[in-house]
Design a protein around this nucleic acid. Structure first.
Length: 870
RNA sequence: GGGUGCAUAGCUCAGUUGGUUCAGAGCAUCUGCCUUACAAGCAGAGGGUCGGAGGUUCGAAUCCUUCUGCACCCACCA
């Protein structure tokens, strides 16, 4: 066998992924086995995958691969999300770069461009997932806007409408003037910004006196319909009921009083602009004030404003300030910090806007969703996200779902010429509903609502709709796979998606959509900034995958990612993963390079038994870590098991001398061990483990580690007696090696070591290996005290190293003194504890007993150390 | 304004229900090695008052109180 010196991830990974696909190992159809199902959080087709996706999908793949190896029917459903507003914004921008304006296109033409975009980027995304090693059932790939899933959206809409949960209303909503669409609260991101607060004079009609009003938005002054003060505010009591003049437009408006106004803030007087502020709108309704909308949908000043018509709102703000100053109405300005809402997708400053939209009433939907998370019917990992979830659901508000976009499922409402509408699956059905009241109506006169639904109104159905649970609620797939086993997603979309999927699950199937939710943290850069394209701090994942290999990247993101905790990404992490792959690769090279004798005589019982014990100890530990979703700890634990225990200790112990063969028994056991190790590691690093596993033994076409069995720990009482002995032996080896290092001995110089004393634990079984690993020509018991030798004390034994030509033993002596000092301190603290009556009486007997043993051990060690100083 | 989380080695973090003088890992640093699997490596070393203060306890990184600093979420204060 001829294996390359370094592991070549690129060629290995492509080879095995193609092999897995060819043999359809990832294909899942319902059968008699227990299902293990994950639906992917569908990535947006806006671009390519970033680091967050690498993390998220690696976790899902680990869980799926482990379940598959455990004999479950593992099904991972992949797919993509049309991401209505985000994608539409991208397509609009792409068209603009080509010199095409959206307004020049028909809806149909635009959708063609959008679908072409989806084909391109959706395809790239799926390829990236394959590169990562994702073991999805690709035959099940879904897209949120494909026919079946769009029909599910319409069904859901009609269902909720009939139930009275969907309604149409004129309300104040968040408006994105760039995308020109409504947004939900969740799509608005508030940031603290410095703003100018303008103090403006509102002159009393026919008088020189005025009410000072503070505002950060002078460009909406033209929409003022009243000034409001607190009824108990003595400063303005005289103005209440009088008329003041709105600056710039000279409108005469009343001064009203309402306790909503905070006397302490600003000037204590508030201008009322019902069209541009939620609170003002409420006050306007209360006092029956008119509404003057002085903004257009693109954020420019409307004709209703009378001045600055057509100017952008920010330009108008400056102009208004200037004009107020010119007219002598500006008292002063002040810089304050306030929160400004930005559109999540376009980053435009959001406007409160009064508009007719479709809403989902959330109160009833929230009930079961809240209850079943709080009682752990659906489990959250980490649990603390329950708090966040609870708070949101308890304060839930209705969900505006209509979006003034083209890319998405169109709202199934049909309007008669007079505005009366029917909600129906088709024009024909709508016509049937309406014709009773409109005998002369013709079907072609009906107009469908121009808006589409919020993208989350489609993705909240995902766990149901990917299994066609709307079209055919009793089909075999959904009965078998639903509810899914676990959802893996970032905590940032807990409201957008997780909460709503839970609501949809209970509403449409009367059953939870998943049993567990694993929340991942956000991937940040070394400066703790969230990775984003605009900052340019997210590595190019395709480049990363080709540089370090998918296994390297998977190791990198997993090794630092505790559930729910953000992780700081650094190139060092995938590098460590790549190195790990190479380490295992070279272990394979070592083993496969051995010549094997036919004899089964051997002297490696101890090493083999020790490693077996160590292996099963690890398997138990890893099982527990998996139960708690502590995946990064499980990976680190495997890393140490393989690198330290297997490579550094076990292989070095059994390694035959150069040129000599290894016995068949040791060889076979070693292959067994490596086989088990690769299977344990396979869920984390699928490619390198497949490559090694395939090389360990002769395999047939169709064999694969990904459908082999996941190792189980022994259930019977496994003997663990060698673990302690090994610990002592390794400690002795390290001590001898340190002395060798201090003495500057070359590796080919062999030395002698003598020891005496006795301890609770022996190292006899390991003597042979100590000798071998420390290059000792002599390692034996001797009652003699070797006064000129370097010494150390370990496990109740005193060791003497004969270093030829060693001039100074100061270094060694210093070390012994230091240890002696430490042990004396240790002894003092133990004795103090033991002489404390309260400790003896209140501590558990086992703890006291342990302290006594520590004292005896310490006394013994001190004695040995003191002796060895002479 | 309400809420959550975090603070442990130079950096990033582990540390289960309080019990070893237990303070741990990886990276980084330092020393010595191209030793026939691996320099993407091997053998070693140094490094921390577990954010501050108080309390509970025989015993606290761990439990309680408080303070400080940081991060995030939610909320209609111009």
């Amino acid at each position: 066998m001829n294996l390359e010196k370094t592991y070549n991830a690129a060629s290995v990974e492509d080879k095995w992924y193609a092999y897995w696909l060819k043999h359809k190992f990832f294909r899942s159809v319902p059968d008699h086995r227990e299902p293990f199902t994950i639906v992917i959080p569908p990535p947006n087709v806006t671009g390519v995958l970033h680091m967050g996706h690498m993390l998220n999908n690696t976790i899902q793949d680990i869980l799926i691969r482990k379940a598959r190896m455990e004999g479950k029917n593992a099904c991972w459903v992949p797919g993509t999300d049309h991401a209505s507003i985000a994608t539409e914004a991208k397509v609009v921008q792409m068209l603009r770069e080509k010199g095409i304006k959206k307004t020049d296109l028909t809806r149909e033409q635009f959708l063609q461009y959008a679908f072409a975009w989806k084909e391109k980027y959706g395809g790239i995304i799926l390829e990236q997932l394959k590169k990562l090693g994702a073991s999805c059932d690709w035959e099940r790939t879904r897209f949120t806007m494909e026919d079946s899933l769009s029909e599910a959206v319409i069904d859901a809409f009609i269902h909720l409408y009939k139930k009275g949960y969907i309604y149409r209303d004129l309300k104040m909503i968040n408006w994105d003037p760039v995308a020109k669409t409504t947004l939900s609260n969740e799509e608005v991101i508030y940031e603290e910004k410095q703003s100018t607060l303008y103090y403006v004079k509102y002159l009393l009609k026919g008088s020189e006196s005025y009410i000072p009003v503070a505002t950060v938005r002078p460009e909406t002054i033209m929409g003022n319909v009243a000034v409001c003060v607190h009824p108990d505010d003595e400063r303005y009591a005289q103005f209440i009921g009088k008329t003041v003049i709105v600056p710039m437009v000279q409108r005469e408006v009343p001064v009203i009083a309402d306790s909503y106004v905070d006397k302490e803030f600003g000037t204590g007087a508030l201008k009322i602009t019902p069209a541009h502020d939620v609170n003002d709108y409420e006050l306007g309704k209360k006092y029956n004030l008119p509404i003057i909308d002085c903004l257009n949908e693109d954020g420019t000043i409307s004709e209703a404003a009378q001045v600055f018509i057509g100017l952008d709102r920010f330009t108008a703000r400056e102009m208004a300030a200037k004009k107020l100053e010119q007219e002598g109405l500006l008292i002063k300005t002040e810089i304050i910090t306030n929160k400004i809402g930005f559109s999540e997708r376009t980053n435009a400053v959001v406007e409160p806007r009064l508009s007719m939209q479709w809403f989902v009433r959330m109160q009833e939907l929230a009930g079961p969703a809240l209850q079943n998370v709080m009682n752990d019917e659906i489990q959250f990992y980490p649990e603390r996200f329950k708090n966040l979830y609870k708070h949101w659901l308890e304060n839930i508000r209705d969900w505006p779902i209509s979006r003034q976009l083209w890319w998405g499922q169109r709202i199934p409402a049909w309007y008669a010429p007079d505005g009366t509408y029917a909600v129906a699956k088709s024009r024909e059905e709508a016509y049937e509903q309406l014709k009773e009241n409109f005998p002369h109506l013709k079907p072609e006169e009906l107009k469908q609502d121009e808006d589409v639904v919020d993208t989350w109104f489609s993705s909240w159905l995902w766990p149901i709709s990917v299994f066609d649970g709307f079209k055919n609620p009793n089909n075999e797939d959904i009965r078998y796979y639903y509810p899914t086993s676990v959802l893996v997603t970032g905590w940032d979309i807990i409201f957008f998606w997780v909460a709503r999927m839970i609501m949809a699950g209970y509403e449409f199937r009367n059953e939870k959509p998943f049993k567990k939710v694993y929340f991942t943290g956000m991937v940040r850069d070394k400066m703790r900034r969230k990775m984003s394209k605009s900052l340019g701090n997210s590595p190019d994942t395709l480049e990363l995958l080709s540089k370090y290999g998918a296994d390297g990247v998977r190791f990198g993101v997993m090794s630092a990612a505790a559930a729910g905790n953000d992780l700081l990404y650094d190139d060092k992490q995938p590098e460590q993963g790549r190195n790990f792959c190479n380490k295992m690769w070279n272990a394979l090279r070592l083993i496969k390079g051995w010549e094997v004798t036919t004899t089964s005589e051997h002297s490696n019982h101890t090493a083999i038994q020790w490693f077996e014990q160590r292996l099963h100890e690890s398997i138990e530990e890893i099982d527990h870590l998996f139960e708690d979703f502590k995946l990064s700890e499980a990976l680190i634990s495997l890393y140490k098991l393989i690198w330290d225990d297997f490579c550094s200790w076990y292989l070095e112990m059994i390694k035959p001398e150069f040129g000599k063969p290894i016995d068949a028994f040791t060889y076979d056991r070693t292959i067994d061990f490596f086989d088990i190790l690769t299977r344990l590691l396979h869920p984390f690093l699928p490619f390198v483990t497949e490559e090694i596993w395939q090389n360990l033994r002769p395999r047939k076409d169709g064999d694969s580690i990904c459908v082999s069995s996941y190792p189980k720990s022994y259930n019977d009482k496994t003997d663990r007696s060698l673990l302690k002995q090994a610990e002592l032996a390794f400690e002795i080896i390290s001590n001898i090696r340190e002395i060798r290092n201090q003495a500057g001995l070359r590796n080919n110089v062999s030395i002698a070591c003598y020891y005496n004393g006795s301890g609770d634990i022996t190292f006899d079984s390991f003597s042979h290996y100590i000798k071998k690993l420390c290059r000792l020509h002599t390692f034996e018991r001797s009652e003699e005290e070797f006064k000129d030798f370097d010494t150390f004390v370990s496990g109740g034994y005193k060791f003497f190293i004969d270093v030829p030509g060693r001039e100074s033993k100061d270094e060694n002596r210093q070390k012994v003194l230091k240890e002696l000092e430490y042990m004396r301190g240790f002894l003092a603290s133990v004795e103090k504890k033991l002489s404390n009556e309260k400790f003896i009486s209140s501590a558990p007997p086992a703890v006291v007993e342990n302290e006594r043993k520590k004292r005896d051990d310490a006394l013994k060690k001190i004695k040995l150390l003191e002796e060895s100083l002479h």
